[in-house]
Design a protein around this nucleic acid. Structure first.
Lengths: 117, 117
DNA sequence: TTGACATACCTCGTCCATCGATGTATATTG
DNA sequence: CAATATACATCGATGGACGAGGTATGTCAA
C-alpha cells in the first residue's frame, strides 16, 4: 500500500485514535474502508499505511474500545468488521475533550484576545 | 519537577513543537518560563517535565528553528534565552497549517455539515 | 487463462520521542 | 541553615510510527 502524509509523525499519532473512534461512531466498518475514509476526510493528506492501521485497531480492541467480528461481505469476501463499544464511546468523548483543549491552547496564541477593560 | 498531564502522550508530542514555536513567536524566553507558560495556557492541564522540555528545545536548536544565548537575568542568574529564527517562523506556519488541517479533518466528523441540495 | 490490480488481512524490526529518574547548582525565604 | 523555587542537563525504559515483507481473494481485460 502506498505511503505518504503531509502530517508529522506526531500529528498522525495524536489524531489516529480520535479519528478511528469518530469514524466508527458513525457505524461499523473495516480496516481497508477505514483507511480510505481517513484519506478522503483529510483531502488526501493523510494516507495511513496498513502497517500502522492494523496495530492501532488491535490495540483499541485489546483496550475494549472497539469490538471485531469476521463476516462475509456482499461480494463474498471475508472482512473483519469493527464497531464502537460503550467504553469506546466514552473514550471518544475523552479524546474529543483532550483535542479541543489542545486546540484551545494553541489558538490562544494564534488568535490572541485582548484583555477587556 | 512535578509531572502530569490530562493529555495523551501523543497529543503532548504533537502539540509540543507548535506550542514552543508559537510562544517564542511572541518574544524570546527560556526553558523554565516556557514550561510555566504552557502550563498557564493549558489551564494547568499540560505540565511538561523538564526531562522532555529540554530535549525538544535542543532538537529545535539543532534544526535551526530557534537560537539560544546564555545571558544573565535581572536577578543575577544565568539563563539560556531562546528566540525564533527565520526558519523557525517558516516552520511555525507549516506546523500551524498541519494542525488546522488535522483539526478540520476531525471536526468534520464531530460537526457534520449536511449536503446542500 | 493469465496477468495486473484493487481489495483485505497480518507481523516484524528499526528508529525516534516521551517521560520518569537522577544529577547539579543558585537565589530566596522563613 | 534548611527548605523551596528556579534553572539547567542526561539517561534508560517504554511505546508507537512506519517501511518492508508476507498471504490471499475478487475483478477485469488481453
Amino acid at each position: 500500500m502506498y505511503i505518504g502524509s503531509m502530517f508529522s509523525r506526531e500529528l498522525i499519532a495524536a489524531s489516529a485514535r480520535p479519528l478511528l473512534l469518530s469514524i466508527l461512531a458513525e457505524g461499523e466498518s473495516y480496516g481497508y474502508a477505514l483507511a480510505q475514509r481517513v484519506r478522503q476526510l483529510s483531502q488526501e493528506q493523510v494516507q495511513w499505511t496498513d502497517g500502522m492501521l492494523y496495530p492501532v485497531l488491535h490495540r483499541l480492541e485489546e483496550e475494549g474500545l472497539i469490538a471485531a467480528e469476521w463476516r462475509e461481505a456482499e461480494n463474498g469476501r471475508e472482512r473483519k468488521y469493527y464497531r464502537l463499544t460503550r467504553d469506546g464511546r466514552r473514550a471518544l468523548e475523552k479524546e474529543k475533550a483532550q483535542w479541543l483543549a489542545a486546540h484551545h491552547t494553541l489558538t490562544q496564541l494564534w488568535n490572541p484576545k485582548p484583555v477587556s477593560t
